[in-house]
Amino acid sequence: MKSRRLALASLAILLAFTVIAGVHPLATPAVAQEATKITVKVTDSGLDPETIEVEQGKLVEITFIWDHKAYPNEEHIMVLEGYNVESDKIDAQHKEATIKIVANKPGTFTFKCDLECDLHDFLQNGVLKVKTGSGGGGAALTKTKISIEPAAISIKDGKVTVNASLLDDKDQPIPKGDITFFINQSFAGRSGLVEIGEERTGPVGQARFVYEPTLTGTLKLTAKFEGMGIYDASELAVDIPASRAFQAEFGESVLPASGHSQELVELKDWAPAALISLIALIWAAFIFILYQAWRVSRVGDGGPGGDASA
């Protein structure tokens, strides 16, 4: 799970760069474009076909069809690296899943099963080649927007909950979109956007993000969507009120649980006193004994005490 996220995040940055660089100045609505439809069978011995080729700029639909014979329990979620897109799960019940992309980036991209089990990584992987040239494409990414209404921000127990909606240009929700959250933070002479979390939008295009602030004041929260398949990147910044609930003391920091057990701490309090008392007692005994020895001299002096005891 972690590696997938990281891969997605890093590729998302690549994608964002591409989009910002403006690869497609001559964009036309995606719907107007005839989609290039490709079917890929997922079989016992791997993907069929393993290599697909499309032209740059085309709207591409890849349909994965579950076609296992020997392994009826196999299930897959196909991802296309570099385009940041992920299919629904396919298994014996749900045999088909389709991913859509605008093939705006040339190059070779791997698509494979993302479920981390068995041999999926090795068997179920193929390559999408996006060829440059013809210029016949011109499919454009669908514009998106992130919306965080003031009502979507709530604070409870010091934790800030943000419900971010990811919508397309027709205000339709986009599910399965990864929204990354940042805050502006400055530290030790440096400041910048600090990534504080990432959430995926649900079926209604909403991502619920919970943040435990480590700062107090009005924080600038930035939500970024890096683009996905046919969707363009978008971002939004909102102010959120935050108050740091946690007051760290030494040995009690936000990170690793630390500190000693209470019994040990208490032991530390009384042990030195006990030790000192013991030593003091011993020295008191020394003084007593020396006093005894000194009293020896008084005994024979014919004093009243000496005579009485002798």
Binding site: V194, L215, A248, S253, L255
Partner: peptide, 8 residues
Amino acid sequence: DMTEDVAT
């Protein structure tokens, strides 16, 4: 800084 949970 573990309190602010930030690093640079």
